[in-house]
Design a protein around this nucleic acid. Structure first.
Lengths: 385, 385
DNA sequence: TTGTATGCGTTATCAT
DNA sequence: ATGATAACGCATACAA
């Protein structure tokens, strides 16, 4: 049991095959069964035998083969996480919540990207099924066509939907109150006198939708669709004619949002406010506004449907709907692990409240066309449902 | 082969046990061996038999059991990724690069968080060893004490270090040219007349280091340590006396950076510029500057050692060292997979170039104490070695 | 308490 | 080309 030399770690020792339970048993002079019991902590083992086995195990640096164990038990203690883009701060933070909740209960996380592509999602689910993941948490890429998810469930791998919904699929689910949050944001804008309010979202899939057309809101990825719905409802309620006029559903990514916003600002009657569906969109919107030589909020007010970490450091601060992103993941994992314990419990649909963080990016819009800043105070908070 | 009803997916079908190869063979009326050959694409199988087997497989929705396969083959096609915080945009983007590179070559990714905690890292590595991961990519939490990593290598699981280094450990490695990037940033500041330049970093571990003391730079997590080194070197070269005076090594997280910056600004002779080691730090720095009633860059210039996605939307834009973050992960995965193919190839140490993105957050500092803005132009780029 | 023996689902070898 | 059979490492029912 010599200490590892600090100067040079013992990686020159060469590759040796992993130690197996059989070797440990042999070293300890007991049978495999006894060794297994001693290390697995089940059945009954004499203290003497246990000591021998444990000594042998540590001495040989025994590491149980999780794969072999899983073959035998039929399941693993890893859960799959299927998201559109782990590089996106939103999902990254979700995954952190998932990971933390999982670790606390002894589960690891295997992450798969779909890039908002349903085929990739199918492949991801297949991969996870083949891995015999204990369950999976999915932010589905599409509102429909969830047969692969249903299939996973039928082979005993429970699915929890996160942030989004799939039509006709019975699962546990967790999402933020996107509709309520968007409603709060719209109320702020309308109360501040805005009527020409644009909405930029990438919820429409990689190809976007032609501007000016009423899109099939019900088919949008849920989190985005809910926000769009709240947006349209709010406009209708404010008696705005042609509520879809300033709605832009563009492909995913910051650049598409940039383009859409640039076009919006070039309109004969440009919007006086822009609602960015999420923070990636917001980045594109803000860049576009800036590059168009306009400023926030004097020329155009901006709100975001998700509060990025950087919302305090823009000038002015970005007013946004704050979702409990970490909790989204945390809750998803807990829903999943609960389901593993009680496979037949009724489905649960958890909606986490959102808050509206009012910073400086909304200007009051006077009827006569003059504009005045509101919210000089650093931060106000309102909470949804 | 009925189509799944759109209205209600077939999850009410109940849980059935996963189909095994044996069942497929039986259904096809052949032996397990033949079925295995047909599905596995090896050996020789008659076209007739292959057709039968494939039909049976699709009909029964056969999904090979990856665990069983792994016990047999001794390895998996998943690689472990060990990072401090998957919720951090930097690591999230790394992981995206890793994931993409892996998928292209048929490998999945299992992510484990360490929270910058070495014990958690040890546990993570143990987990991955037990899972018989094909390899692992690690952004180590500490500069020393990498025996667990050496151990993984000796049981045949290659390790690739990403972004950081571990003393005395032979591995493949990839990192950005942090020293070169930091040097560029310092040159900008010094050329602009700054001498009282602070450096805020969380590289010192969870407890931070007392301010004003020369810390053991060599023990810092490498990426941070390299930047500190470049910082100190640049100050010395500019003949600044007591180069460590404005160096702050604080605990991890935005809040600690906020506190450290607040204290710096309250100094009798506050710094005229602050170098934020990474973008989380930068967030804290910018908030602190703002809350102190100061403005960037008139009162204090700010640069960051890593260019966040939001660097264009602060006012002014945040000048920062741009690292090829995605490529860091992409390269790490490719190094790992290459190593799997050629276990005895010489170690590779890849250093990716960094660039300096000069936006508006640096002000020229006249000798007499007057200040003038530079860089009215939107963006200039310089590249490191 | 301990050991023997068998099974998990796959891969792979060996005759046939 | 195919089938019988062993092996992977671990878990466990059953016998001792």
């Amino acid at each position: 049991m010599r200490a590892v030399t600090e100067g040079q770690l013992d990686s020159a020792a060469g590759r040796r095959a992993p130690v197996t339970l059989t070797e440990v048993a042999a070293r300890a002079g007991v049978s495999r069964a006894t060794a297994a019991r001693a290390l697995g902590g089940y059945g009954s083992v004499s203290d003497a035998a246990r000591a021998l086995v444990e000594a042998a195990a540590t001495e040989l640096k025994y590491r149980p083969n999780g794969m072999a164990r899983s073959t035998r038990t039929g399941t693993t203690s890893t859960v799959g996480v299927v998201v559109a883009d782990i590089g996106n701060a939103f999902f990254a933070r979700c995954v952190r919540g998932i990971s933390d909740a999982g670790r606390a209960r002894g589960y690891g996380v295997i992450v798969v990207n779909t890039d908002e592509n349903v085929d990739a999602e199918r492949a991801a689910v297949r991969l996870l099924v083949e891995h015999r993941a204990a369950g999976m948490i999915v932010a589905p890429a599409a509102r429909t066509g969830g047969s692969h998810l249903a299939e996973a469930q039928t082979v005993g791998i429970p699915v929890v939907l996160m942030d989004r919904r799939v039509r006709g699929l019975d699962t546990d689910r967790v999402a933020a109150d996107n509709r309520g949050g968007a409603k709060l944001a719209m109320e702020q804008l309308i109360r501040a006198g805005h009527r020409r309010i644009a909405f930029v979202s990438s919820a429409a899939g990689p190809h976007g939708a032609p501007p000016g057309q009423h899109p099939p809101v019900d088919d949008l990825v849920t989190s985005g669709g809910d926000r769009v719905q709240a947006y349209l409802d709010a406009l209708s309620e404010a008696a705005v004619k042609d509520p879809g006029y300033y709605l832009r559903l563009c492909p995913f990514g910051e650049d598409a949002a940039y383009t859409a916003t640039t076009e919006l600002l070039a309109l004969p009657k440009p919007p006086t406010a822009v609602f960015a569906s999420d923070s990636v969109i917001a980045l594109g919107v803000l860049r576009a506004v800036h590059d168009a030589g306009a400023s926030v909020p004097e020329d155009v007010s901006v709100v975001a449907g998700d509060a990025p970490a950087w919302s305090p450091v823009t000038t002015p601060g970005l007013s946004s709907v704050d979702q409990p992103v970490y909790d989204l993941g945390h809750t998803a994992m807990n829903l999943l692990l609960d389901r593993l314990n009680e496979p037949d419990a009724p489905w649960r649909d958890v909606v986490l409240p959102t808050t509206f963080l009012s910073r400086g990016s909304i200007a009051r819009r006077a009827r006569g066309g003059r504009r005045r800043l509101i919210h000089q105070e650093p931060l106000t908070i309102e909470q949804s449902g």
